[in-house]
Computed example of a mutant assay.
Amino acid sequence: MTTETIKKPLWRRLILPLIGGGIAGFLVAFGFLNLSEMANGADLGDSREIGGLVGALYAFTGLSVLVGVLSPGFGAKFLNVEDADELREQRKMLSYSGVAMILLGGALMLLALSGEGAFLPAQTGLIGAIALIVVATVLSIVSHRHTDELQRALSNDAVSSAFYIVFVIGGGWAMLAHLDYVAGPAPLDWLSMFAASLLVGAFWQTARRGLLMRGPN
């Protein structure tokens, strides 16, 4: 007797994660933008809002990973894994990574809400962001010790892709600003580009290896 595994059509495998991700992303963005308005009763500006949204995306992604680790059966339905057993096997690595992402996202949101004309004083934002980044860095190093060869190669390639993304977008923007064609990027814009490019790089390298659609979703 042979057992045949029937895969769902691609659109059926994608529809629920896309709808769920879209709704969650909207709620996260809506929540941060409302928080920024409540903070000082005024528009924080494009740089701060974009930086905060990128930070919120990091925090949401890390939180999603932690939920999947705590409940592997549920996490296997929306995370990019083969099955719940994979989440159980990688519990340590994913836990460290998830917390690190939340902390990095928190640091970016904290910076977006700090400084002149924002909700928090600059000194508070600086101290808080540095502390969060230091802890996130330590957790990332610990997490790296629990990765396999494929994951390490994927991570290295994602960082390489992120470098080229920042070089093209950030470098092109800086070049045009130098020639007075556009306004130059603000310091927070660079931080947002660094953070966002890592996510894009990771997504691209995962897709390039054919790992985006795994499991029974």
Rank of each mutant, 00 (worst) to 15 (best):
G117V: 07
I15K: 02
R12M: 12
G215H: 06
I133F: 05
A118E: 11
F26C: 14
Y96F: 15
Y58Q: 01
F167R: 08
V81R: 04
Q90D: 12
T206V: 15
Y96M: 11
L110E: 05
V200A: 14
S155K: 09
A29D: 03
S161K: 13
R208A: 15
S160W: 10
S143Q: 15
V54T: 01
Q151H: 09
N34C: 05
S71K: 13
F163C: 12
N40L: 03
M38E: 04
V200Y: 07
E82G: 04
A174G: 04
L35E: 01
G75D: 02
F119R: 14
E4F: 12
M1Y: 12
F203Q: 10
A158H: 05
V135A: 12
S95G: 12
D83S: 08
R13V: 02
T3A: 11
Y164C: 00
G68M: 08
A196W: 09
F30Y: 15
G62M: 00
A158I: 10
N40S: 08
M101C: 11
K77P: 01
L53M: 12
N217R: 13
G41T: 02
W11G: 03
L104S: 11
D189A: 13
E37L: 11
I23C: 04
K7L: 12
S143V: 07
N217G: 07
K77E: 09
G22C: 01
H144Q: 12
E86P: 02
A177E: 05
G51W: 01
F163K: 12
L111K: 14
L57A: 14
T5W: 05
Y96V: 08
E86R: 10
V142T: 10
L16G: 00
A24P: 01
L44T: 08
I23E: 00
S155Q: 13
V142G: 04
G62D: 01
I169G: 00
P187E: 06
L188C: 11
L111M: 15
E149D: 11
I141F: 15
G184H: 14
G128K: 03
G171E: 04
L104W: 02
L188A: 06
D85T: 10
V81H: 04
S47T: 15
L212D: 10
A100H: 11
S143G: 14
V138I: 14
